[in-house]
């Protein structure tokens, strides 16, 4: 059984080649496109770094398309059509996938607001508490303070 990883073991397979890389296209030009695509059979392996036979064929296809004058976007669109948006390594901005794009920013904004409010509260509450204590406005401490002040005033007034 050739599970997904069997693609690697098939590297010695001789047939089914897409043909030699066109002379006019350099490996660097191919990799320039390939590095923006991901191996559809692996997890988290970029096409330019993938050694599977299937990926080799994909790079051959990129070379042919470059030789025919396709630009990077056209090539990427071709692979999306063939393999689906997973080949881009990032979810497209549609449907449920929006969440994957939006949620980190929402979390970041929410966290920022929370942090800002917490810090502001910490900064403003201390002087206010002190002021409240002095004015006798803190219920427990202030009541005691007022009572003692009244007593002192009566005694010496």
């Amino acid at each position: 059984m050739a599970q997904m990883d069997a693609a690697s073991s098939s590297s010695e397979v001789s047939g089914a080649q897409t043909g030699a890389t066109p002379n006019s296209v350099t490996p660097n030009e191919v990799n320039e496109v390939a590095k923006e695509l991901w191996c559809p059979l692996c997890n988290g392996v970029r096409l330019d770094a993938c050694e599977l036979k299937a990926c080799e064929q994909m790079r051959d296809m990129i070379a042919e398309q470059l030789a025919e004058g396709w630009d990077k976007e056209q090539i990427k669109n071709y692979f999306i059509e063939q393999y689906g948006p997973q080949v881009l390594g990032a979810p497209p901005l549609e449907g449920f996938n929006w969440l994957a794009w939006i949620l980190p920013f929402v979390a970041l904004a929410g966290g920022g607001v929370f942090l800002w409010r917490t810090v502001r509260r910490m900064v403003t509450s201390r002087p206010r508490e002190a002021a409240i204590t002095m004015d006798g406005a803190s219920p427990s401490v202030a009541d005691e303070y007022s009572r003692r002040l009244e007593e002192e005033l009566k005694r010496y007034g």
Partner: peptide
Amino acid sequence: YLDQEPAAKAYLAEFNITYPNGP
């Protein structure tokens, strides 16, 4: 499955496969 058309066609030709095949 997850293949390139030129390579796939070469494979079909190699084994002389005549039943319907497609990507």
